[in-house]
Design a protein around this nucleic acid. Sequence first.
DNA 1: TCTTTATTTGTAATTCTTATAATCTATTCT
DNA 2: AGAATAGATTATAAGAATTACAAATAAAGA
Lengths: 145, 145
Amino acid sequence: MASASLQEAVSVLKSTNVRMTPQRHAILEFLHSSMSHPTADDIYKSLEERFPNMSVATVYNNLRVFKDAGIVKELTYGDSSSRFDCVTSDHYHVICNDCGKIVDFHYPGLDEVETLAEHVTGFDIEDHRMEIYGTCPECTKMSKQ
Amino acid sequence: MASASLQEAVSVLKSTNVRMTPQRHAILEFLHSSMSHPTADDIYKSLEERFPNMSVATVYNNLRVFKDAGIVKELTYGDSSSRFDCVTSDHYHVICNDCGKIVDFHYPGLDEVETLAEHVTGFDIEDHRMEIYGTCPECTKMSKQ
DNA sequence: TCTTTATTTGTAATTCTTATAATCTATTCT
DNA sequence: AGAATAGATTATAAGAATTACAAATAAAGA
């Protein structure tokens, strides 16, 4: 479950019969370099200059390919559009209710939750995610003024 | 954070200046009776018979009112449409990757996560949610046949 | 290089959700 | 009770995100 580097992601893709295209590489690159959690549109806009002819459909297609390959996760929050996060290691997200900022948060040791859920529900558990909601320091400061 | 009964939900609404209408009551009733986690459209369809003239907008409007009042939570997963869950007590959701079934799952004691997140990120934490993903017994059985 | 097959592109279509304005209904004030 | 006010519903249109589709293009292996 840990595809740390861009290289690793590329080789994961090659192992299935997924071809490497310039667009794909650029999308992966952007996902790995940006520490934020971009939307499909963020990605599209950021690559507009390098790929003036790229279609939005390409971004969506490839995000699905990456998701299926397990190297990218889709995050759906309250807001309209999904965000995408390259799978690096288990971490959670702290999200600001005001401005939407997302901060990574490490908290190990929730494997137990999966084990218990398996026993209680009979599901074959694969994964879990957690989001923590609140107000970020900046927004707190703003509201106090 | 615990509005166990329908009655309680109604009185919460009355305490703000939200009027009780037949449509509102029916939506609340449905949310409380259905142990599933219906989409706006599920709710709309289920009330079609009783309220032939009801608009989808009414469902959406009221779900927002309920959300703002804190008696209903919106759940956004991978699939296209949001699901709604009346706030009863803290619980999490186990979701089937195949058929989308959602099962409630109680796991106390994750307040610590919020505390730690506050310290690490400086956020003013209010809430958290967790989803556990896997394959339900039925879908596992199906795939083995 | 050639062939096969995946991928990209551009556009149209779909779906979910929200905005708007008109109508209607409940509550309040006199 | 009756009028005024504010809130709610309805119907429809608009908006935004995502997907479907068919034609054109490009990658990978023989």
